[in-house]
């Protein structure tokens, strides 16, 4: 769905690159996470992929079209939810969606259906300017679904949302993906990437350090240990067992059979741990 080869971009058009020689592919129907700290080059890459920024170096194909030859019709296939909410504050939520719906050449989804989907059904007639930051963000998110995109760009889709709403948004992303929508997810939130993405790319200082599935990364970088807290006659006790060593495995089964388990955690690494390990950098 997306093919990027040797992409470079310099805002000052000199040798300082915001994105420096990156290559990757996004397969049709997958959720691809583009992860990195602020200023890593995520938005620049997304800007080029969506045609908002002009391609300077490299080759980029999106939905079968060279971005250099992007026609406006292409945007009938693309949806984009921006990190910064960008809706007409003087129009109501419904007016916003109704207006944008008229700018596509394909059958669009009902504005009310989308507002209901993001929990703004009862706010349809309220001016977007009166919305909270989170509500504006949901409206921007809903707008990106208007044209039933087959390729969906999401820039920090859960930023500023409370956990319940964020969970709803993740559910919508999964549902759309199950319907065959390819998702390009840009975020610095490793948790959402871990929960949603089929594959992730770590980008730092304009360069991709690694691309793999979260599961493979955890297997590769995580420790194969289980930490168990169980009840004994002398109180509670904590032990760590290897999930590979035969003696540890035997002992773990004994503990489970003979004791009351208080807690049990696998010691697999989080995506954030792996990111720090691979890039040597934090996410903030």
């Amino acid at each position: 769905m997306i093919s990027v080869e040797n992409l470079k971009h310099s805002y000052k058009k000199n040798s300082t690159f915001a994105v420096n020689d990156i290559s990757f592919d996004v397969k049709e129907g997958e959720i691809f996470g583009f992860l990195g700290p602020s200023g890593a080059g995520k938005s620049t890459t997304q800007g080029i992929l969506t045609g908002l920024l002009q391609l300077q170096h490299g080759k980029v194909e999106v939905a079968g079209s060279d971005v250099k030859k992007f026609k406006n019709k292409m945007y009938n296939k693309i949806g984009m939810s921006f990190e910064q909410s960008n809706v007409y504050s003087k129009l109501s939520a419904k007016e916003n969606l109704d207006f944008y719906a008229k700018l596509f050449d394909v059958k669009t989804r009902s504005s009310m259906e989308l507002l209901e989907l993001v929990g703004l059904g009862d706010k349809a007639k309220i001016r977007a300017g009166e919305f909270s930051k989170g509500m504006k963000h949901r409206l921007t998110f809903a707008r990106s679904l208007l044209n039933n995109p087959s390729l969906w760009f999401l820039d920090e889709p859960t930023t500023g949302l409370d956990p319940a709403i964020a969970a709803d948004i993740k559910k919508i992303i999964r549902t759309e993906n199950q319907r065959g929508v390819t998702v390009f997810l840009t975020t610095h939130n490793m948790q959402i990437a871990d929960q949603l993405c089929d594959r992730v790319a770590f980008i730092v200082d304009g360069q991709i350090k690694l691309i793999d599935s979260p599961k493979n990364l955890k297997l590769q970088y995580g420790e194969k240990l289980v930490e168990v807290e169980y009840q004994t006659n002398d109180g509670s006790k904590k032990e760590i067992f290897s999930t590979i060593e035969a003696a540890d495995k035997k002992r773990l089964i004994e503990v489970i059979d003979s004791s009351q388990i208080v807690t049990m955690h696998t010691k697999e690494a989080t995506l954030e741990d792996i990111f720090i390990k691979v890039t040597g950098r934090g996410l903030s």
Binding site: N72, Y75, Y100, L103, F104
Partner: peptide, 14 residues
Amino acid sequence: GEGIIKAYAITASH
């Protein structure tokens, strides 16, 4: 200020 032009650019309009 509202980022509207970017949003407009990601539509099938010119």
